[in-house]
Write a protein that binds this DNA or RNA. Structure first.
Lengths: 327, 327
DNA sequence: TTGAAAGCGCTAACAT
DNA sequence: ATGTTAGCGCTTTCAA
């Protein structure tokens, strides 16, 4: 078995209390004993048990991160930023993957609570939508990422989706486009209604956008783009980059060139967006900031700040090759 | 504070032992007491402390997963499969993101050991390369994913990289290509030498491949492809899909059409590969199997199986639109 | 500066 | 079928 503090104490001829103090530096000690203890600890390869410490201190120094689906290219950046931020402060991160299944997410939540994580970051719309009440009664701090529910009573950070698609639409309008379409996502997606509204905002005084529905992924984007083409649009704002990449294909197969015949804008700025052909004009949201802020907010909550503040991140239009003047 | 087992015991007028037995179903109880205890537990919103249980049982039911970089599109699938497999068996997963930094990974390892995870899955070449010794002395089971080190003495699962690029190369040869190039990755990458060798294997008796170096990512692929074009190749085997996607761009910018002028093959079959233009012919490795097997292997080790077995996954050539007959 | 001892919340003998 | 008790490995009073 692994060495315990008692082993170290025995080996160095002091009490466990002294070992604890010396190893944690929580109290001064005579240099001589210090050295003996440290030597003994090293010789035994002693590593304090986080479990025992957690029981005593009543904190695990571990956070939970609930994510809808790591496989969606939007999330890894959030996860990474969260992990880095947590690790910087000495916290571990338990990852809970929702698989887009609300029941499963609830089970995960129980798992996290039972594991006594010190706080939870939820980056899952399904979660906040179906289990808002449950989230609010959790004993530890919960922070939401990309939460559409304004009245959740929990701290949250979100990109301004509506502003984002408005920016995108205005860009299209500025390029001379007048018939503009939007490929939306199912309502299950966090931001679908906000992003839809932004397109309407952007066309105010100009006309009404043609609304079609995708599936939030590549396949849906391809089908929807063909539909928009038949409707005669010259500009498309897609729900996200995945949808836009699908649209790129759908357009290509229908014989339309981008951007000569149709201009196309995505959302998120996933890494791939810069590498499509043509490179995708898109609305960037700072995913790293999302993850980092959420973790830091949890930590602040742990330090006593129990406010339910919400931060709205300003998205940025990244103009690349998929948009151009109406021909 | 959260309710403890003592609270439940007091409220239902039994001992903590009885509560423990009933809630865990580890021993029969009179239906009447059963009901009282369960009711009390529910009323108090009691959730057993995993920390206390872990201390007593000497198992945390938590696994560690060390990953080089979640942001690399190859990993999320592994992570997801691992998480799902773990969760199915009631295990949680602590994610440790290496950020491609060996020192950082070592720190992560300590964190995991201190947290007393029951086992560790390492999906990081940097890790196995620099810290093989440290890994071997860890008290809990360690399983390697995509490990290049045959002599590590630890169970491991890896795709047969060499076979994969051989398959790819043979496909090119079968299509009539004779001048074939390979865009390799820096040696820091797990599989670079294996994949390089596979290309040589595939050209045995035909010639020698032109070897150039990428960076394992999109940018490097673009530059390297241009180089290969100048060398007059008509077929390219890329280290991975990211590299191939870069090559696609590099080729396009240099005025070469794929597959009419140059055939191109990737590796991994990341989700994006199906959606490039043209869709990428690639070598698929079953990333989900990698993650799932690793977790299951750790669990088996926990059940007593301490063998250092290695499994080699057979990759599969997925023929899409980026390869065609030499024109 | 150091030690003795209690206790964090649970489970598992061992009793009854 | 249920209760008593010890103890998992730490930290932290309280004493000395």
């Amino acid at each position: 078995m692994t060495a315990t503090i008692a082993d170290v104490a025995a080996r160095s001829g002091v009490s466990t209390a002294t070992v604890s103090r010396i190893l944690s530096g929580s109290a001064p000690a005579r240099p001589e004993t210090r050295d003996r203890v440290i030597a003994a600890a090293r010789e035994l390869g002693y590593q304090p048990s986080g479990v025992a410490r957690a029981l005593k201190r009543r904190e695990t120094r571990t956070l939970g991160l609930v994510v809808t689906d790591v496989t969606n290219p939007f999330y890894p950046q959030v996860v990474r930023a969260a992990e880095v931020a947590a690790h910087e402060r000495g916290y571990g991160l338990i990852l809970a993957n929702g698989e887009d299944d609300p029941a499963r997410e609830l089970a995960h939540l129980d798992l996290l609570v039972e594991r006594r994580v010190d706080g939870i970051v939820v980056a899952s719309s399904a979660m906040t939508r179906h289990h808002a009440a449950r989230l609010r009664e959790i004993a530890v701090p919960v922070v939401l990422v990309n939460d559409p529910i304004t009245g959740s009573g929990l701290p949250a950070i979100t990109a301004d989706h509506r502003l984002g698609t408005r920016l995108a639409t205005s860009h299209l309008v500025a390029l001379g486009h007048r018939r503009i379409g939007h490929i939306g996502a199912p309502d299950a997606h966090v931001a679908s209604s906000q992003r839809r509204r932004g397109v309407v905002d952007g066309m105010r005084g100009i006309g009404t956008p043609v609304m079609v529905q995708g599936d939030g992924g590549v396949a849906g984007g391809a089908a929807a783009a063909a539909e928009l083409l038949r409707a005669g649009v010259t500009g498309i704002v897609a729900y996200n980059d995945l949808t836009a990449i699908g649209a790129l294909r759908g357009l290509g197969e229908a014989g339309a060139r981008v951007p000569e015949d149709v201009s196309l804008i995505g959302f998120d700025d996933i890494p791939m967006a810069a590498w499509t052909d043509p490179p995708l004009t898109t609305v960037r949201q700072d995913t790293a900031a999302l993850g980092r802020w959420a973790v830091e907010r949890v930590l602040r909550a742990l330090a006593g700040d129990r406010e339910a503040d919400r931060v709205l991140l300003v998205p940025e239009l990244v103009i690349r090759g998929s948009t151009g003047p109406r021909s």
